[in-house]
Design a binder for these strands. Structure first.
Length: 202
DNA sequence: CTCGTTCTCTACGATTAAAC
DNA sequence: GTTTAATCGTAGAGAACGAG
């Protein structure tokens, strides 16, 4: 491979084949310099095509870039880049939000599992109490008990003032204290059960 | 390691087309 | 008519890489 000294001044891009016929100018009408220039032009074109392809792919990927602008013209490269940046930032925000939501739900699941375990233990303890016998209580009796309790609560609640929130919350607290005590509710239940038994006998 | 070759990037001027 | 953005061809610098 022999080249003129002046050729080195360009320090340019060329595939090996360009130099193949260097010693025989009759094969090509183009000078060495011209051939180098053409090859470089081609390479540059190829590079620009790759960049263009990259912009096109980006535009296809980003939903906000998929439509052309109002006038119907293709979005500028700067716009494609800016919209892509905006979209990536939006996705990052979404991801963060979803992660927070997921963590919240996980905590909720843990709390609910603890509650479930507690309730299961309560049920288990009640079932294993000495003297406990499983007796079937009819839906009719259950409904009477429920109805009686609710009637009584409703009657007593009617004394609570609901004219504004302050009075309502104050009223609710004293109402709970007075009418929703376990002992009171227990008495109510016994009362209705007794009445039910009397009716059955009579 | 040096040298030659190839690849990649930047810069610049010219041109074109759309927007203002 | 001017401005702006995109595209093209060209030149040159430097990194990357393989051969010797």
């Amino acid at each position: 491979m022999s080249r003129d000294k002046e050729d080195y001044e360009y320090g340019m891009v060329l595939p090996e084949f360009i130099f193949d016929d260097e010693d025989d100018d009759s094969k090509s009408p183009l000078t060495y310099k011209e051939r180098r220039r053409e090859a470089h032009t081609q390479a540059e074109q190829k590079r620009r095509d790759a960049i263009k392809k990259g912009y096109d792919s980006l535009q296809e990927l980003v939903p906000t870039c998929q439509q052309t602008d109002i006038s119907g013209y293709k979005l500028s490269k700067a716009t494609v880049l800016q919209k892509s940046i905006d979209y990536i930032q939006y996705l990052q925000q979404q991801k963060k939000k979803q992660e927070e939501e997921r963590n919240g739900l996980r905590k909720e699941v843990v709390a609910l599992r603890i509650m479930q375990t507690n309730y299961e233990q309560i049920v288990k303890a009640q079932q294993s109490q000495p003297g406990h016998t499983e007796t079937r209580i009819s839906d009719e009796v259950k409904f009477s008990v429920f109805q009686f309790i609710m009637d009584q609560l409703f009657t007593t609640f009617s004394t609570v003032s609901v004219s504004n929130f302050t009075e309502l919350s104050a009223g609710v607290f004293s109402w709970l204290e007075e009418y929703c005590k376990p002992q009171t509710l227990k008495d109510t239940v016994f009362q209705v059960l007794r009445r039910h038994n009397t009716n059955m006998r009579g």
